[in-house]
Nucleic acid binder design. Structure first.
Lengths: 226, 226
DNA sequence: CCAGCCAGTAACTAAACGGTTACTTTGTGG
DNA sequence: CCACAAAGTAACCGTTTAGTTACTGGCTGG
């Protein structure tokens, strides 16, 4: 056999759109590939419906590696959840609300959140799964408790500026504002399949998505304006 | 054995709060008991996590009866889903919006929806599960397609009365109003576990629940008022 | 009054599942 | 250059799972 002489340091190029498959002898990539495959599998099937064999196959590797890197199915799920939260909080950091007027800042936060939810359906799905289990894994996670919401403070500052200018109600609460934004986006997207089936409006159509984004901004601002 | 002489037509009284157990020789009750047990099991664990054995045990019967009445696990899930939708639409019929002023009517609908969600966590959970699977079973269901939303029409009438009086914006859309009400209630309750963990506010506290109900009413009205 | 049918039980089965074992391959430092 | 550790493979294992079989008990109508 001369297979040993081939494939030296040559790495497979990831095919567009698909999760990267594990390369040979590249632990970093194998780990990442398993995590990506697990994210998709857990998001599509929930924790009870996800299959360890399916994850290994999607990752282009085998179960042994999955257990090698992540311990067991539950720890792998936790790693997926942690990564998902870290990703959104990291993305939120790119928002610079302090440069904007209070109204623009709230509008920007609402549009950012909407866009993030729209582009990351797997995040919404994982949230749903985690809540089904009453945040059992999230509560365990030490990593995520620290993550907290430094970001609620930034929103509080924004609201305070608006209150000082007499634009916003003095009782406007930052967590309530965020919950309002998140609720309107989350429900529309995560429940779109049952809603579309029952009410017969194609919620996923471009025009409807755009209209709902405007609706979120309008509603959020209306709820805090004096 | 004289077991045969006991238990004649004597039926077990359901214990408070718990799902009724199947009685002997009472097909109606056995069926209902399996359905109640399945509702709880699917709501707690999702479709992939629900166990047929667990359902049979919770129902106080055995698997054979479950397959006898419902065919298989998926058909049982569909029966649970159908019942859950029929229950909420039936409850909605008790709302008499036409007797109220437009503003009172919208407020009443919002409070009704909130109360229903609060008292039926299993319904929220089943919605989440069904959406995870892209409404796969709901779309199959012929029973539910007919159910539709006769109720959106009643809301449209209410809005029209408000528009005629110059109270509501002429572009206020009934489906959007309902989505707004449902979104704010659904997200707060179904995601309460992750939200409470991350943001450290006990969303399930009585005072917070009451405040959020008022928030929903206020936000909904603010979004349609001229 | 009993034949037949329906409710109900328990033990079983084949397949799928999460997790492990025994093994091979390969890059790297002494 | 080779010993060793880490990466990777595939076949395997015990358990759990959805679904079935073979059976019992008892109500009902002819």
């Amino acid at each position: 056999m001369d297979r040993a002489h081939m494939d030296v340091k040559r790495r497979r190029v990831a095919k567009g759109g698909q999760a990267e498959r594990a390369g040979s002898r590249d632990p970093e990539r194998t780990r990442a590939s398993i995590l990506a495959a697990a994210t998709a599998e857990f998001a599509e099937n929930g924790i009870g419906g996800a299959r360890v064999d399916a994850i290994a196959e999607r990752a282009g590797t085998n179960k042994r590696m999955l257990y090698h890197y992540f311990g067991d199915k539950e720890q792998l799920y936790l790693a997926v959840l942690e990564e998902a939260y870290i990703d959104i909080r990291t993305a939120e950091k790119s928002l610079n609300l302090s440069d904007l007027s209070p109204e623009q800042g709230v509008a920007e936060l609402a549009m950012f959140t909407w866009k993030y939810f729209l582009e990351h359906p797997e995040f919404l799905s994982l949230l749903g799964t985690e809540n089904l289990h009453r945040a059992r894994w999230l509560r365990q996670s030490t990593r995520l408790k620290e993550l907290h919401s430094h970001f609620i403070d930034k929103l509080a500052d924004l609201l305070d500026r608006g209150k000082a200018k007499g634009l916003f109600r003095v009782d406007a609460d930052p967590l309530n504002v965020y919950l309002t934004i998140a609720a309107l986006g989350y429900f529309y997207l995560s429940n779109q399949h049952t809603l579309t089936t029952i009410f017969g409006r194609e919620l996923a159509d471009e025009a409807n998505l755009e209209a709902w984004k405007r609706h979120i901004v309008q509603v959020t601002l209306a709820s805090i304006r004096r």
